[in-house]
Design a protein around this nucleic acid. Structure first.
Lengths: 144, 144
DNA sequence: AATCATTTGACATGTTTGATGTCATTATGA
DNA sequence: TCATAATGACATCAAACATGTCAAATGATT
């Protein structure tokens, strides 16, 4: 193992994230979304509906802050509350049609951008890198 | 190209960064450094000395904020000002012995951690992933 | 040399992205 | 039933920046 490569790889995650989020922000400009409310909608798109604490766990941020973001999407008519049979106060948050169309459109445009960005990249390399990164995240989190 | 893999890879840069910085923070606990002042010292370690605007350019953040961080390291005796023949006000910032020992020690411990973290990873895979990430950063930044 | 734009440090203020703490209400489980 | 946990709502705080402005210093142009 060339450990300097791995060291560098880990530290390059910040520039990659920053560059990616800058590009995502540009695509969000006329939608009224932020990168973080976009993340909330993406979770709801993937699993149809979730409670605020569920979303917080997925995003690994505190529920209190997710609540603020969710309340924004509710105010904008992008999500709506659904009754939760398991808890009267803790409503289930689901996309409205408006919200679904919006986030689907955003994700679609992003995927097109990624496709043009990576048209000439080796598929196996990408898969390798993805696996590696997931391994690293797992080990860093578990303190191994 | 499986574009979903690439899409996922890009989005995983945030969890990777967060996990990495959490671990780095733990290693910094008894040093009085933050992740960002650590970054300043690492630049000075790599190139011996630099002005505040130089550091800002490397970190891709505003010089005004770098100034605040550098002033902290000056107050802590980790760096010192050196006369700049090219500009009377814009001093060159360099590590003191104390600062050099500290950042070298921090980086050394981090590299040991990375070594144990990645002992069983394939060296070629890591190199591939690093190259891929650098390519992606370049393309995202240039808007390609 | 005089002038004008640029660079820089210093300082004040604003913004985003959260964390933390607390309260009242509402489940849930022993 | 009674203690405990979960949840939404709200307030406060902090880190990591960005932005704007000023004055001193420098560099470039004429």
């Amino acid at each position: 193992m060339n450990q300097d490569d791995l060291y560098q790889l880990i530290w390059m995650s910040r520039p990659l994230m920053q560059a990616a989020e800058t590009v995502v922000e540009q695509g969000l400009e006329d939608t009224g979304l932020t990168v973080r409310t976009r993340a909330v909608l993406e979770i709801l798109l993937a699993q149809d509906a979730a409670t605020v604490p569920d979303i917080a766990q997925k995003l690994e941020i505190k529920r209190q802050y997710v609540q603020v973001m969710v309340n924004e999407t509710l105010a904008d008519g992008l999500t709506r509350k659904r009754e939760n049979p398991r808890h009267k106060r803790s409503t289930i948050i689901a996309l409205t049609d408006k919200g679904r169309v919006l986030i689907q459109d955003v994700v679609h445009r992003e995927k097109q951008l990624v496709a043009s960005l990576g048209h000439d990249l080796n598929s196996a390399d990408v898969k390798t890198a993805l696996g590696l990164i997931n391994t690293l995240i797992g080990r860093l989190k578990s303190g191994i």
